[in-house]
């Protein structure tokens, strides 16, 4: 498709040049007709003499250069130069068009495209990195939350374990203490019973000693025991 339009442009360029050619040639032909018919054989020299004659009365003050007779005519309207101008314009413009469209413009276009692509790539990469850092941050926060939860869990577990341990210790200790208490109480009770059992012997001995001291002679052992027993029975009853 691109090729077709390039071709069209080329056709149009040549077409326009062809269109311009009659314009260029028309005044020259007119000049040629006004020139002397005898001059027709010497074509390159002919317009020079014709124009020099025409120019002299139009621009008499102008310096007449014998080497270049065109000086007397207004150059942009000098039709004898038109074919050469058109020829070289067509050639140079054609060359320039080909150079520009084939070489230079694609070259500049490529540079611009490369830069455009590079910028787009860089932006894309920057976005990618941004997304990555965002993801990393999210992951970090998640990990942090998890670690915190885990730490809490461990702390709770440890606390529970320690509490259970100390509970158990305490219970064991209490049980031990209770056992010891019971043993001590039993021992006290035995000691008390023992002591109580000795009370009668001591009381009998004491009473005997007191009686013997008071009356100067010992009383019969059986009487003393009897009196102590009754006294003890009275105390226990009281």
């Amino acid at each position: 498709m691109m090729k077709t339009w390039k071709l069209t442009v080329a056709v149009a360029m040549t077409g326009a040049c062809l269109m311009a050619a009659p314009l260029a040639l028309a005044p020259q032909v007119a000049h040629a007709e006004t020139a002397a018919p005898a001059d027709k054989a010497a074509a390159p020299a002919k317009p020079v003499s014709g124009h020099a004659a025409a120019g002299e009365h139009a621009n008499g003050a102008a310096e007449h250069n014998p080497v270049d007779a065109h000086a007397v005519k207004f150059p942009p309207f000098d039709a004898t130069t038109f074919p050469s101008q058109l020829l070289w314009l067509a050639i140079t413009f054609g060359i320039l068009y080909l150079l520009m469209s084939r070489v230079t413009l694609p070259r500049i276009g490529r540079i611009l495209e490369e830069r455009h692509d590079r910028i787009a790539d860089d932006l894309e990469e920057a976005n990618k990195h941004k997304a990555e850092s965002h993801a990393a941050q999210t992951a970090y926060e998640k990990a942090l939350t998890e670690a915190r939860a885990k730490a809490n869990a461990i702390a709770g577990e440890t606390r529970n374990r320690l509490a259970a341990d100390s509970d158990a210790n305490r219970k064991a200790l209490e049980a031990d203490l209770a056992a010891k208490l019971v043993a001590a109480e039993q021992r006290i009770a035995t000691t008390k019973t023992d002591a109580m059992s000795h009370v009668r012997g001591i009381a009998v001995d004491t009473a005997d000693t007191i009686v013997s001291t008071l009356i100067g002679s010992s009383a019969p052992r059986a009487d003393v025991e009897k009196a102590v027993d009754s006294a003890l029975a009275a105390r226990t009853a009281a």
């Binding site: 069209t8 149009a12 360029m13 326009a16 040049c17 269109m19 314009l23 942009p76 309207f77 314009l89």
Partner: peptide, 20 residues
């Protein structure tokens, strides 16, 4: 500064417009 050159360029433009 030569009319024939500018005219050729202008006709080239218009010729391109018409042909295309």
């Amino acid at each position: 500064a030569h009319l024939i050159v500018t005219a050729a360029l202008a006709l080239l433009v218009i010729g391109t417009v018409i042909v295309y």
